[in-house]
């Protein structure tokens, strides 16, 4: 796949749960080698959109319209096989969720459930993940120590490393630094900038400053609608929409 290939393409994606509209006719493209930021206030549909991408959105009475192409395949259908999709599209949650096992076992969990047992392969994947998340130097000597002993920021980077150990094409991050201190946040942002050299990264955040700092292009969601999307530099300096301007300026949110 060459650079700047479109990896996620949303065409008139609408999502309703019962009577409630969660997403309304979303159109956007996310490309390889970029960090695509999605910002918006709580309840604007950012996380729901992310969950559609890796097919983890579930709710009683949900109804979908439109098409959402992820790596060329429409993932909105009922008959999508989620397992291969999730190996290519990994996700990291807002709060770091390390499993109650060693650092190494956390890293190779995704490979082991695929049935991979070869020690060499597992070790390589673990190292690759840790290096991608810039955590290798800090934990290389204690891979077999319990992961829950790590600090919050390290735990979140371990979660990124665990996702990267699967060598995904796309990494989805749902407010990955919301619970972290500025230094940990900085480290994660540095890791993301490094990661985009080989991957597509979708970063959901309600921290507009973070979107401005790290994303190449971004989108602004408000109450399920996509208000504006474009190059981050442009959206943050000369937004086309008044609502975007107000949100970025902190007049609501």
């Amino acid at each position: 796949m060459s650079a700047k290939t479109v990896v996620i393409e949303a065409r008139d994606v609408s999502l309703r749960v019962g009577e409630k509209k969660i997403l309304e006719r979303i159109n956007l493209e996310i490309r390889r080698n970029e960090i695509f930021g999605i910002m918006g206030p709580a309840g604007s549909g950012k996380t729901s959109f992310l969950k559609l991408v890796n097919h983890t959105f579930r709710a009683a009475g949900m109804a979908l319209e439109g098409a959402l192409y992820v790596l060329g395949e429409d993932v909105l259908g009922e008959d999508v096989n989620p397992t291969p999709l999730r190996r290519k599209v990994s996700m990291v949650f807002a709060t770091p969720v390390v499993l109650p096992m060693s650092i190494f076992e956390n890293l190779v969990y995704g490979l082991k459930i695929q049935g991979i047992r070869d020690k060499h392969t597992l070790r390589e994947a673990a190292e690759r993940g840790l290096k991608a998340a810039i955590l290798w130097e800090e934990v290389r000597d204690r891979l077999h120590k319990p992961a829950q002993k790590l600090s919050g920021g390290q735990q979140q980077r371990l979660c990124i490393a665990r996702a990267m150990a699967l060598s995904p094409e796309i990494l989805l991050l749902d407010e990955p630094t919301s619970g972290l201190d500025p230094i940990s946040t900085f480290r994660i942002e540095e890791a993301l900038k490094e990661l985009k050299r080989h991957h597509a990264i979708v970063l959901v955040s309600n921290n507009t400053k973070q979107i401005a700092r790290v994303s190449d292009r971004c989108a602004f969601f408000l109450m399920g609608e996509l208000i504006e999307t474009g190059k981050t530099a442009q959206v943050f300096t000369v937004p086309k929409e008044k609502k975007t301007d107000d949100y970025i300026a902190g007049r609501f949110g």
């Binding site: 999730r86 969720v97 995704g110 459930i113």
Partner: peptide, 27 residues
């Protein structure tokens, strides 16, 4: 057992049964 463990299993491509046997039951 925290729901988050099941979510992690899911996003890493695990089936429900894998989540049950590898994370839910041991915990």
């Amino acid at each position: 057992v925290p729901q988050a463990f099941r979510d992690v299993n899911e996003v890493l491509g695990g089936s429900k049964w894998q989540g049950v046997t590898r994370l839910v039951l041991p915990n």
